[in-house]
Simulated scan of single mutants.
Amino acid sequence: MNAASPDTAAMAQQDVLDDVLQRVGRLNYTWTNTESLLIHLIAGLARVEKDVAVVIFLTLSTTRARVDLVQRLAKMAGTAEDVRDDILALTGRLTREGALRNKYNHCIYSFDPEEGRLQTIMMRIQDRRKDIRVGKTEPLTEGQAANIDESIARLQQLNIDIWDLVRRHDFPV
């Protein structure tokens, strides 16, 4: 049996990278589309017009700040208990999906020079008690590709569920 030529191996790795980047792009699209629905939650909870909620949403520059605002508004007196509980559950789901999205958006993709496998290099400092670590690498496997697909599906369902809440409670659209 003949080994694959270097050109064939490089093309196969490029195909794997293209597949991963397409998945990550779809994850980002789905994430951004779903995160933008926080605008309607802000409008409904703060009892403001959607245009005002858009300005508030865009003024907050991180997902964490936007989710914190929505959760705090939901916890205020005057918010019905069922609305509060539903919103906290929805924002909790969004936050959990954020970990995977952040992982693939804050890394470098490279090929392992020894084995030729595609891997991620995390662009994050890990503070330890007595030292720091940088550049944690992980091979990119089929299982991780499936994790991205599963996250996209969960975000799509979350999107539907947020729209359902917005409509049920007559929040501004």
Rank of each mutant, 00 (worst) to 15 (best):
S5W: 06
A146F: 04
T59F: 14
L73V: 00
I148L: 14
I160N: 03
I108Y: 09
I162Q: 09
D131M: 04
A153C: 00
Q144R: 14
R154W: 02
E138K: 07
Y104P: 02
R154C: 01
D131W: 09
K136Y: 10
I132K: 13
P172F: 12
W31G: 07
R129E: 14
V54S: 04
K136P: 01
R93M: 08
A153I: 00
V54T: 11
V24T: 12
M123H: 02
H40D: 15
A65P: 04
N102Y: 04
Q119H: 09
R47G: 05
R154Q: 10
S110T: 12
K75A: 15
K130N: 13
R66F: 07
D68L: 06
L140M: 15
V67Q: 02
I148E: 01
Q71H: 01
D51M: 07
D112Y: 05
Y29E: 12
R133H: 04
R101N: 09
D82K: 01
M11W: 01
V83K: 10
R96P: 00
D68Q: 13
E115C: 02
R133V: 10
Q144D: 03
T141C: 08
G135S: 10
T32N: 15
A4P: 04
D127V: 13
F57C: 09
N28M: 12
R167G: 05
E142M: 03
Q119T: 03
